[in-house]
Design a protein around this nucleic acid. Sequence first.
DNA 1: TGTGTATTTGGCTAAACTTGCAAGTAACAG
DNA 2: CTGTTACTTGCAAGTTTAGCCAAATACACA
Lengths: 107, 107
Amino acid sequence: MDAKTQAKYEARAKIVKALAHPARLLIVDELSKAGERCVCELTEMIGSDMSTVSRHLAVLKGAGLIEDDKRGQMVFYRLRVKCVMDFFDCIESVMACNLKRQQELLK
Amino acid sequence: MDAKTQAKYEARAKIVKALAHPARLLIVDELSKAGERCVCELTEMIGSDMSTVSRHLAVLKGAGLIEDDKRGQMVFYRLRVKCVMDFFDCIESVMACNLKRQQELLK
DNA sequence: TGTGTATTTGGCTAAACTTGCAAGTAACAG
DNA sequence: CTGTTACTTGCAAGTTTAGCCAAATACACA
């Protein structure tokens, strides 16, 4: 594999990795529904330490998936890219497909 | 977050994690183009040890994204879910969006 | 200025992931 | 049966990531 190809897949992987965590998927899901949320709201939903949530948000921001907007003492986050929801549709269909196969194996 | 919600996002994350590696993205990409490939072909493309490639394939298979088909001494892998390619479209648009922003920041 | 709230960052530990080598299994050829 | 090829798995590093607590920063308000 040449260096250019490798760089291409590493760049893609960086974005996928940013989504590869339950808490970060929840954040993306919530932002897609609510439009924007502050760190404290997300922290309450997730149930981890706020510092942990802040780091998750930094990962998503680093991948360019979300953007922040500081207003007063609060920081609001929102999605930068709408197509991220297609991920969920695809994941759901993978899970449905897996479930179907398992059921067939039980017969 | 209740246990059910948590389980939902963990199940999703498992699938996304399976894709969160350059070599595995390359495998998926290649399988979507070629239809099927044996381990030796993928090993040559990726350039890692065959044992490493075999493990990557096991991860993708564990997530239900690919399936294998042993014929003779060779094992062929192919995609189980076609929509995985939507991932790439979305990722590309995220990267294009990021690039655009970077260019604007340079002005 | 001093206090309280919201968020980020440093430091540290535990868990998870990646990888290559070596050894094991399976199929085929002679 | 023996050797070879294709692949998988056990093991042991090395690297990355996640999580919490504590400390630092940023802002608002009295």
